[in-house]
Design a protein around this nucleic acid. Structure first.
Lengths: 283, 283
DNA sequence: GGATAAGTTGTAATTAAATTACAACTTACT
DNA sequence: AGTAAGTTGTAATTTAATTACAACTTATCC
């Protein structure tokens, strides 16, 4: 909750002096954020510690922290909140909500992601003899996308969304091969099996999945995203977007690791598409 | 102008140490507003006065004032700026940049998207006898994802990433069928043909593509996203994420339009997956 | 109605943070 | 190589915020 609202709501629990402080702040919030504690105390005609106590009562660390919160409240509230779509939302409402909750999810993922593991995953991928991407259901399209990205790198890449093909592919994997298993929940039995089989055959298994899930336990390396989304109830949306962004990050790490010369190769792939497209100037 | 943008814009006018400060702030803006000048100086490996000078250069009164502005930027409209990955970025840097530019792209898309067209697209989709999703290359995985979503709705859905299959499918389409063509650039010749063929056969063609592109011209309805990404040079990243979110929005609009009874059907699809998964409590 | 305990407020001391002044160093140009 | 402009860091200073504690207020119980 926004600090300003909080002040209004807890006006009753304030003491006399604290209330004076609240009044002054509510009357000139913009001035407050540019005042020192001394100035504010003077305006409210109370002592400095009173102002400090007031801030603490609002669950902030102290006066400077309180000002930060207040500044954010003034800049029209919280930006991306994970708001759920409701029955009677119109197109405007649900469009905004989906955009915002996706952004909130990405923001959460960004903060939770483990850079070290990403770095190790990039290491492993750059050294792979062959890379396989496996996913089922909604994660299958993420796997496809990954294939589309890594394929440009001139590395053998395969992608299967069929359990039988995945199984065969996993059985044939050998040391130096990298298998990437994608599953938001990490509880898809078939995929856990695939991971186990691949590992038994000495492949390195990277899991793009929930930390501590059954799938995670079968993996050499786990890239967990921790997007709070209940895919048991809702369609996978934000979780899958976060997975895609993770793939983007791995692909980017890959290109950077491979150096400049290698990037010319990317250009070649791009150029090869030219014939199949209308030129920009054409219209 | 927002301080974050200002930092990005004036990166060139910064000195070496100031740039270090800028990088640290851009990488962890949220941490910054809760740090002291000493902590930030240490993180950026510069002296405290350097941080102070950095703040002044950005037309703030000093460090505390700078934090206030930063807090407001974070709360405000566009916190995430589209920064490009550079040669010598480490894992931390490129991870942050990709997350941020994706979020910036979503934010841009959110502002540009036309709610009316979305509403009309939802209309058309809910009344479709059959829905087809077509995409090539990176957009193929978006098409797959769309299939995975709409398939749950108990409507005939097909998805092809093969030109020949797409062509045959388009030729066989009839009135009441909806064809969704996905292409970021809108300049993929084959897909333009598909759209034209489908239209000739009286299908409604929805284009998820750039406004004013050759593909757009062939469509009945154009959902344009206007994500500034040069896919001629770089791999499609943010653009494709935006497309996915758009698909999420259409799917959501679809369920909402179909009413409560229909949503029980979704639950059934979900329940059918149960057997293939480990239960949550299992581990 | 006074005694006491709980709660509130302010003063003064302490601690922490930010800023300034200045010196050392680096870079670019002559 | 020498010099001036610009950049950076150290140490001193100033300012701000917090803590500890004492004084006061209010409410409650005998």
């Amino acid at each position: 909750m926004n600090v300003l609202e909080k002040i209004v709501n807890s006006v009753n629990s304030f003491s006399k002096s604290e209330r004076k402080v609240a009044d002054v702040i509510l009357a000139n919030p913009q001035t407050t954020i540019h005042s020192s504690i001394a100035a504010l105390a003077k305006m409210a005609d109370v002592s400095e510690p009173t102002v400090n106590r007031f801030c603490r009562r609002l669950d902030t660390k102290g006066f400077p922290d309180f000002k930060l919160h207040l500044a954010q409240s003034l800049a029209n509230g919280t930006p991306y909140v994970n708001r759920h779509v409701e029955e009677d939302d119109g197109p405007e409402a649900y469009t905004a909500k989906i955009f915002e909750s996706t952004m909130a999810a990405l923001d959460a993922a960004r903060q939770n992601v483990d850079i070290n593991t990403i770095n190790r995953a990039v290491d492993v991928l750059t050294q792979a003899k062959k890379i396989s991407f496996f996913g089922l259901g909604a994660s299958a399209s993420v796997a496809h996308d990954a294939q589309n990205k890594f394929f440009r790198f001139n590395v053998p890449v395969v992608c299967f969304d069929d359990i039988v093909m995945q199984r065969m592919s996993a059985i044939n994997s050998t040391e130096g091969d990298v298998v990437v298993c994608i599953s938001h929940t990490g509880r898809t039995k078939n995929l856990c099996d695939i991971a186990a089989i691949a590992r038994e055959n000495d492949a390195t298994v990277i899991g793009v999945t929930a930390y501590d899930s059954p799938l995670a336990k079968e993996c050499t390396l786990v890239l967990s995203l921790d997007v709070p989304e209940d895919t048991d109830m809702y369609m996978p949306m934000a979780s899958r977007v976060a997975q895609l962004v993770l793939i983007d990050i791995l692909a980017t790490g890959f290109t950077l690791r491979r150096g400049t010369k290698f990037r010319e190769n990317l250009k070649k792939v791009k150029d090869s598409l030219r014939g199949s497209r209308f030129e920009k100037k054409d219209f």
